[in-house]
Amino acid sequence: MSALTALSAIHHSPVERISGPVLHIDLDAIAQNHRALRRLAPAATIAAVVKADAYGIGAEPVARRLLEEDCGLFFVATFGEAVALRRVLGSTPEILILNGVAPADIAACHALRLTPVLNSLVQAKAWAAAGAQGRRKAVLQVDTGMSRLGLSVAEQAQLIATPGLREQLDLGLIMSHLAIADEPDHPGNVAQWQAFQSARQRFPSVPASLANSAGLFLGPDYHFDLCRPGAALYGIESGPRMTGIRPVMRLTAPVIQIRTIERDTAVGYGYSFRASRMMRLATVGVGYADGWPRRFAESGAAYFGDRRLPIVGRVSMDSFSVDVSALPGEALKEGDRLELIGPHQSADDVARAAGTIGYEILTSFGKRHHKIYSGWSLS
Rank of each mutant, 00 (worst) to 15 (best):
V284S: 07
R263N: 14
M278L: 05
G270L: 05
G287R: 04
S276K: 10
A289V: 05
A275L: 11
S276F: 00
D290L: 08
R274T: 10
R294C: 07
V286H: 02
D290N: 15
V255H: 02
T283G: 02
R280C: 03
G268L: 05
I256A: 02
G270F: 06
D290Y: 02
A282G: 06
S299C: 10
Y288F: 13
E298P: 04
L281W: 12
V284A: 04
R259M: 09
G268N: 06
G270I: 09
E262N: 07
I256T: 05
R274H: 11
G287K: 01
F296Y: 15
R263I: 13
M279A: 13
F296K: 01
M279Y: 10
T260Y: 01
S299H: 11
R294S: 15
R295F: 15
D264A: 14
S276A: 12
R274N: 00
G300P: 13
F273E: 01
A275E: 01
P293K: 07
V267Q: 01
R263A: 13
W292N: 11
M278D: 03
A289D: 10
S276T: 14
R280S: 06
I256V: 15
P293T: 13
Q257S: 14
A289C: 06
I261Y: 08
R294G: 08
R259T: 11
E262T: 12
G268A: 05
T260F: 00
W292L: 13
R263W: 05
P293W: 08
S272Y: 02
I261E: 00
I258N: 10
